[in-house]
Amino acid sequence: MTAFAPIRTAIRSPRGGVSAAVLVLVVACALFAPLVAPYAYDIQNLPGANTEPGAAHWMGTDEFGRDLMSRIIFGARTSLSVAVTAISISVAAGLTLGAMAGYFGGWFDRAVTAVVDLTWSFPEILIALILIAIIGPGLESTMVAISIAYLAQFTRLTRAQIMALKNETYVEATTNLGAGHFHIIFRHLLPNALTPVIVAGMLATGDAIILEATLGFFGLGAQPPTPSWGAMMSSGTAQIFIAPWIIIFPGLAIAITVISINLFGDALIEALDIRNRLRSV
């Protein structure tokens, strides 16, 4: 079985296929935003402010007369890059911490577990807000805040996988052949523990998009004029009586992206048959 076989199986299921197609479309929009967007995201046209959706502006314009669809397409760049970067950092750090804690045990394991348990009961938004209070608002802070807010989840999951694997016979055999700890962790244990953590990371990317949008909505994330789905809705609240589309369309973009990520993740879990390994946390 190659690494791509489960992905192929997931895509062949109806929900997996549809969600994969939507995700490819969203990612393409983010990558090729300047080519896809009908207008530039920052060109203001005050006489045309708050125009209803129509032929010229499919999703209408915002309070500065900027084309909403173009801003949503460029906003996909912000949202996706922040979420994917933050979760990648979080997964990498969680894999390392969880593997070391699970493999070595002892005081290091107790310290890591204590911190993980401590953050576990707190909602991610609260952890993110504490971090933003320390490092200040902005896009980079959002990234750092998100990656730390989800760290506990990946550390815990990796640790559970490593604990289950480290007493296998092949590990004992490799140790007797004279392999060092790091060789065993990185060449033998982590490759076997990787799949559930990556899938959990993919699902968390959806949550991270929502968290980024929430922080942006609070005015603590992307700063103007950078288009971000959350910040767009924040400025739209002032126009809620006259231009509801400023709120409707960016929210729809988030909802469609996150639902697709969840559906595809679910199809992937089914194809890989790892539901129990994810639940063991």
């Binding site: 959806g206 929502i210 949008a213 929430t214 909505f217 959350g230 809705m233 739209g236 609240t237 809620i240 709120i247 409707i248 929210g251 988030i254 909802a255 996150v258 639902i259 969840n262």
Partner: peptide
Amino acid sequence: STVPGFWLGLL
């Protein structure tokens, strides 16, 4: 479980 809370509130 997938719709952002603040967007739902606004809707």
